[in-house]
Design a protein around this nucleic acid. Structure first.
Lengths: 338, 338
DNA sequence: CTGAAAGCGCTAACAG
DNA sequence: CTGTTAGCGCTTTCAG
């Protein structure tokens, strides 16, 4: 385990001062070409690599690190966002720290604290539901922060990247209405979560537009994760007067809803916010509100680097457009088996 | 944008020396309780946070950072591994850097180089296919490295966490054979990838065991991603004498195969390495080789921290067990719709 | 074009 | 129990 070479070692080998090595490493102009190549040779020979820790210790030099906090990096939606951010970070020569809050404000607080101790140059956060004790004004002033998928609560003047939640839900439910349904149920997760609230509002918009008044018995909220959503779907199927179609507000709930329908061998027309790869391969194809989570990450990353680059414009709020994909849209050219 | 407080600021406010502050921050024993609480008050008042960069600059003090390189953090399989690692890292007070190699050795090299510049305490890698120019002996000696999902090529003496690829494939194909199939096709991705090679071997094992000789026309290799896999499945369906069942070697290929069968409205019994949430909700349920990727990450993380903790045992090779899930296993208690 | 000296924020010695 | 000194690896003055 030989010690890692330092600029000092390189300088000694090349017969120059440490400062000249620094100049070569940083591609500074005023270096004699001969000296430069001699130093470069020494660098290559020793396998020297600049210590980022030491570099960023000097004032003004930020760590080439950005931090991402999501609810759960194991959730494909969040990891797709991470992927988009990573691409942008790489273009800017930065690395990405990732951590999961598990939707717990306390964990979010700890993680952000740890990121700050590592002097991240910026932060991208999918905020947890409750008040953000860590994203206090002084934190927000000390480094750029972008909120993705949900705004901060209480609302702060930070950049956001959000989906057209309300409009997407509106259109999905509209689609069911056009098919003649009038008893359309809805299953949502935590009604405190911004996305769920917005999508619920879109559902209500569509009903109102159609002149229908919402039926309390058909609006199920507070069903977290696929297991609880499964129970919710069973409850709907147990109703004396069943709904004729169902709208579900996210990619966890749709899994539970489908499982329940599968168990009961009873399929209701379904519309879901969030797309998934198998949507068109199911027993009954479903209508989905589709969008590109990688693009969300890219937008968030680009906005963050604009701030890191010094932009002081007023907060930017980016809307990511969503598309409705109905069973009729699927693979229109596909013919039957030959 | 006020400057971030340092130990110096805390020391001045508390009327002690900087070293005493350091002692309090690091929970060292020999500090007077009165002094300690006075310092703590100053810390709280200023919102002081130790600068990790500066701390880890001292020799012997490693950065509380570990690095993860996978093929694509947007792939749910890899992000699940990341999630498992993250949990272990947190328990050990470390943060996780993540990056995608896109299966390109050159990018892998760059990413690992960047991680090393940030003085990561350890590295977890899903190695790319070709030779690992970066994971050279001197790198492997300078910090702990764990390989997940695939061993290093050329083989090095590092810890690995691998699936029972060959056995899992063997059992999946065995299952098809027991259903009476004798013309079982196989679709694989890059035959250079370790997991694909092993799973192919398992497929051949099963055929041999059944006294069948492999049919070249039914073994399709080199189909990367779901698009190419879709074409492969079409090719199988175009064969003058079609196979009666198909085994696919990963979670990308199964998507393509299913799409092709769906387009043709022609479903062949299918077995897949890699499970997915919708396996039992499809038009024709399929047989899957199932395992827990989060657990893979946990095992890798725990092994890494054993090394970071100083373990010098010979390389540890952890096998993650896999389970066969057949359509008959699915939800046995579920009854028909009431 | 090149170098010497100072210091970033912190911790390990060694005094007191 | 507490403080002083030195120095981690690097970049920034400011002189040559």
């Amino acid at each position: 385990m030989t010690a890692r070479p330092t600029m000092h070692d390189v300088a000694r080998l090349a017969g120059v001062s440490i400062k000249t090595v620094s100049r070569v490493v940083n591609d500074e102009p005023r270096v004699d070409p001969g000296t430069r190549s001699r130093v470069q040779a020494a660098i290559d020979h020793l396998g020297f690599r600049r210590n980022e820790q030491a570099r960023s210790l000097r004032p003004g030099q930020s760590t080439a690190l950005i931090g991402l906090v999501t609810g759960d990096m194991g959730n494909p939606f969040y990891s797709a966002i991470a992927r988009g951010i990573e691409d942008v970070a790489r273009q800017h020569g930065h690395l990405l720290l990732t951590a999961s809050s598990e939707e717990q404000p306390e964990r979010e607080r700890q993680v952000i604290g740890a990121f700050l101790q590592h002097n991240v140059a910026g932060l991208i956060v999918v905020p947890t539901v409750l008040a953000h004790q860590t994203l206090t004004p002084d934190v927000l002033e000390s480094l750029p922060v972008v909120a993705v998928d949900r705004p901060l609560s209480p609302p702060s003047a930070v950049d956001t990247v959000l989906l057209s939640n309300r409009d997407g839900a509106h259109r999905a439910v509209q689609h069911l209405l056009r098919d003649g349904h009038t008893r359309i149920a809805m299953i949502d997760g935590d009604p405190e979560v911004y996305t769920g609230r917005e999508r619920t509002a879109g559902y209500l918009d569509a009903l109102r537009e159609a002149g229908l008044s919402p039926d309390r018995a058909l609006i199920l909220q507070g069903y977290h994760g696929d297991r609880q959503a499964e129970a919710a779907m069973h409850a709907l199927l147990d109703l004396p007067t069943r709904p004729t179609a169902v709208f579900v507000t996210n990619n966890r709930i749709v899994v539970g809803a489908l499982k329940a329908m599968h168990d009961r061998r009873h399929w209701l027309p379904l519309a879901s916010f969030d797309d998934f790869e198998f949507a068109d391969l199911l027993t009954t194809p479903i209508t989905v509100v589709s969008y590109d989570p990688i693009e969300m990450g890219k937008q968030a990353g680009e906005q963050l680097f604009r701030r890191i680059g010094g932009s002081t414009l007023p907060p930017v709020h980016t809307q990511i457009q969503v598309a409705l994909r109905t069973p009729a849209d699927l693979r229109p050219g596909a013919g039957p088996s030959s």
